[in-house]
């Protein structure tokens, strides 16, 4: 059968010759290789003191974004939940009441918005699919927790804080 990548090597099943049967040459070669590794640069990061630099496209924990006036962008359209391959997102929509215009940008908003970080595979499809630029993946990751329910992140965990002052720009990921 034609292999997919042409990179597979056929296994050599010939019986071992005398040179191979005495094992020692191969053992000595192996010892040489491991000796070289003894002096190589270590690949480990000393984690708490030293953190590993992430790549610019790293996809970590989600945030729910606000617009320039500090209003929630999400309109609870549910597209992210549909796009999510891991079915990690749940939400409940609610209608914006008069007088809440400074809180929510659209007439419909997410009253409840939860992402289960144990299910999420951090694929970023939610970010790509969102028509309102409401959800983004950041550069942090979910910290450890003692219980499963600690990994279900609600709106209070996801939503970026309300800007205190009017002139303070809302941080938005480019």
């Amino acid at each position: 059968m034609e292999s997919l990548t042409n990179r597979s090597k056929p296994v050599d099943r010939r019986p071992m010759n005398l040179w191979e049967k005495i094992y020692l040459p191969a053992v000595i070669k192996g010892l040489g290789i491991t000796l070289k590794h003894l002096f190589k640069k270590k690949a480990t990061y000393n984690f708490p003191e030293q953190t590993r630099p992430f790549s610019p496209v790293f996809r970590g924990l989600h945030i729910l974004n606000r617009d320039e006036e500090g209003r929630e962008r999400c309109t609870a359209c549910g597209l992210c939940a549909v796009a999510c391959p891991a079915e990690a997102i749940t939400m409940e929509a609610a209608e914006r009441k008069p007088g809440e215009e400074h809180l929510y940008r659209e007439e419909k908003y997410a009253a409840r918005y939860e992402i289960n970080m144990l299910r999420c595979i951090f694929c970023g499809f939610c970010e790509e699919t969102c028509p309102k630029d409401a959800i983004y993946l950041t550069e942090t990751f979910a910290p450890a927790n003692y219980q499963r329910k600690g990994f279900i992140y609600g709106k209070e965990d996801l939503l970026i804080p309300f800007p205190e002052k009017e002139n303070q720009p809302v941080t938005e990921k480019p």
Binding site: T34, H37, L38, K40, K42, A43, T44
Partner: peptide
């Protein structure tokens, strides 16, 4: 030594 041989600390 195991760690060093395996490029760990």
């Amino acid at each position: 030594l195991a760690a060093f041989i395996q490029d760990r600390r």
